[in-house]
Measured scan of single mutants.
Amino acid sequence: LTVHVGNVTYHFDNPEQAEEWAKRMAKKYQGQIHVKDGQFRIE
């Protein structure tokens, strides 16, 4: 699973971990989480 934050990409084996990280990053950067094809993108 991949989480994109700006132009930085993080890889996770565990979906719960990826989702948790995406939520934390979205809160930190006050962005929206977009989920597409098993990838999380924070914008």
Rank of each mutant, 00 (worst) to 15 (best):
G38P: 08
R24N: 06
T9D: 07
R24K: 13
W21V: 02
F12A: 00
E20R: 10
K36G: 07
D13E: 11
D13S: 10
H4N: 05
Q17M: 10
K27E: 13
Q39V: 06
G6Q: 03
Q39R: 04
H4Q: 13
K28A: 06
F40K: 10
T2V: 12
H11F: 12
Q17K: 11
G38D: 07
K27P: 04
M25C: 04
V35T: 05
P15T: 09
E19N: 06
E43L: 13
Q39A: 12
T9H: 13
E16L: 12
M25H: 03
K27R: 11
Q32N: 06
A22P: 00
F12T: 00
Q32V: 14
I33L: 11
L1P: 12
T2L: 11
F12N: 00
Q32E: 12
Q39C: 15
L1N: 14
H11I: 08
H11R: 08
F40I: 15
G38W: 02
G38N: 07
V3Q: 00
I33D: 03
M25A: 03
N14A: 07
T9F: 08
E16G: 07
D37K: 02
Q17D: 13
A18D: 01
V3M: 02
E16K: 13
D13H: 04
N14V: 07
D37Q: 00
M25R: 00
D13A: 06
Y10M: 04
K23N: 08
Q32C: 12
G38L: 05
H4L: 13
H11E: 08
P15V: 12
K28G: 02
E16T: 11
H4I: 14
Q30G: 15
A22G: 03
V3N: 00
K23T: 06
K36P: 03
R41Q: 14
A22V: 08
D13F: 06
E19H: 10
Y29G: 03
E16A: 11
K23H: 10
Q39F: 04
Y10R: 08
Q39D: 14
H34E: 10
V35G: 03
G6R: 05
V35Q: 05
E20M: 08
A22R: 03
T9N: 03
Y29P: 01
Y29E: 02
V3G: 01
H11V: 11
H11K: 10
K28R: 11
I42K: 05
F12E: 00
K28Q: 07
H11S: 06
R24H: 11
A18H: 02
G31N: 04
G38A: 02
R41L: 15
I33S: 03
N7M: 10
T9L: 11
Q17H: 10
I42Q: 04
F40D: 07
Q39T: 04
G31Q: 05
G38H: 03
I33G: 02
V3I: 05
Y10S: 01
G6E: 03
E43S: 08
I33E: 03
N7W: 10
V8M: 12
E16M: 11
N14P: 00
H11Y: 13
A26H: 04
I42M: 02
V8K: 12
R41K: 08
Q30H: 15
H34C: 15
V5H: 07
K28V: 08
E20Q: 09
A26L: 06
N7P: 05
Q17C: 15
P15Y: 15
G31C: 15
V3H: 01
H34L: 11
N7E: 09
V8D: 06
D37F: 01
L1A: 14
Q30Y: 08
Q39I: 07
I33W: 04
E43P: 05
A22C: 07
E20T: 04
P15G: 05
D37E: 06
M25Q: 03
T9C: 13
Q30M: 10
E16F: 11
A18I: 04
F40L: 15
F12M: 00
F40E: 07
V3C: 03
K23Q: 11
K27W: 04
F12Q: 00
V8T: 09
V35W: 13
Q30W: 05
G6P: 00
K23E: 09
D13M: 09
D13P: 07
G6D: 09
N14F: 08
T2D: 06
K23M: 07
G31M: 14
A26M: 05
A22K: 01
T9I: 14
L1Y: 15
Q30L: 08
E19C: 15
R41I: 15
T2K: 07
Y29W: 09
T2H: 12
Q17I: 08
F12H: 00
A18E: 01
G38C: 15
N14S: 12
A26Q: 05
E43Q: 05
Q39M: 06
H4R: 14
H4T: 14
K36H: 14
N7H: 11
E19T: 06
D13R: 04
F40Q: 07
Q32W: 02
D37T: 01
P15M: 13
V3A: 01
N7V: 05
G31I: 13
T9K: 08
A22D: 00
K28C: 15
F40Y: 12
L1Q: 07
T2I: 12
G6L: 07
N7C: 15
K36Q: 13
Y10H: 07
E43V: 14
G6H: 13
D13Y: 05
Q32Y: 07
R24F: 12
A26T: 02
T9Q: 09
A22N: 01
L1H: 14
E20L: 07
E20Y: 07
A26F: 05
N14D: 14
L1I: 13
Q17E: 14
Q17S: 12
N14I: 07
D37P: 00
A26K: 02
Q30P: 07
E43H: 08
Q32A: 10
Q17T: 10
K27D: 12
Y29A: 03
R41C: 15
A18K: 02
D37C: 14
G31F: 12
E20C: 15
E43R: 05
E19F: 15
V8E: 09
H34V: 15
V5D: 02
Q30K: 13
T9A: 12
M25S: 01
E19L: 15
K28I: 12
H11N: 05
Y10D: 01
H34T: 14
A26S: 05
N14R: 05
I33M: 05
N14W: 06
V3P: 00
I33F: 06
V35K: 05
G6N: 09
H34G: 04
Q32T: 14
K23R: 11
E19S: 05
Y29V: 08
Y10L: 07
E20V: 03
A18Q: 03
P15N: 07
K27Q: 11
V35M: 11
G6M: 07
N14H: 09
A18F: 11
V5Q: 01
Y10E: 01
L1E: 04
V8C: 15
I42Y: 05
D13I: 06
W21E: 02
E19G: 04
I42H: 06
V3K: 01
Q17W: 10
D13K: 09
G31L: 14
H34K: 10
K23V: 10
Y10K: 04
G6S: 04
Y10I: 07
H34Y: 11
M25Y: 07
H11P: 02
K27H: 09
M25W: 05
Q30I: 06
Q39N: 13
H11M: 06
H11W: 12
H4E: 04
Y10Q: 02
K27S: 07
P15D: 05
K27A: 13
H34D: 06
Y10W: 13
V35A: 04
V8F: 13
T9V: 14
R41F: 15
Q32K: 11
D13C: 15
V8P: 02
V5L: 10
G6F: 11
E43D: 09
Y29T: 06
E43F: 09
V8A: 08
R41H: 15
H34N: 10
T2G: 02
E16W: 10
T9S: 09
Q32M: 08
F40T: 11
M25V: 08
E16H: 13
W21N: 01
F40V: 14
F12Y: 01
K36C: 15
V5N: 01
T2N: 05
W21T: 01
K23G: 04
E19R: 08
T2Q: 10
P15F: 14
V35P: 02
K28F: 11
V3W: 01
R24Y: 13
H34R: 10
V35Y: 14
I33T: 02
L1D: 03
G31E: 05
E43M: 10
K36N: 07
Q17F: 07
F12W: 01
T9E: 08
Q32D: 08
M25P: 00
G31R: 03
V5F: 13
K28D: 04
P15L: 14
E19I: 13
E20K: 12
V8Y: 12
D13L: 07
G38E: 05
I42A: 03
W21Y: 08
W21P: 00
K23A: 06
M25F: 06
T2F: 09
K28L: 14
D37R: 00
G6V: 03
K28N: 03
K36Y: 10
K28S: 03
E19Q: 09
N14L: 12
F40W: 13
K28H: 13
F12C: 08
A22W: 06
Q30N: 14
D37H: 01
Q30T: 05
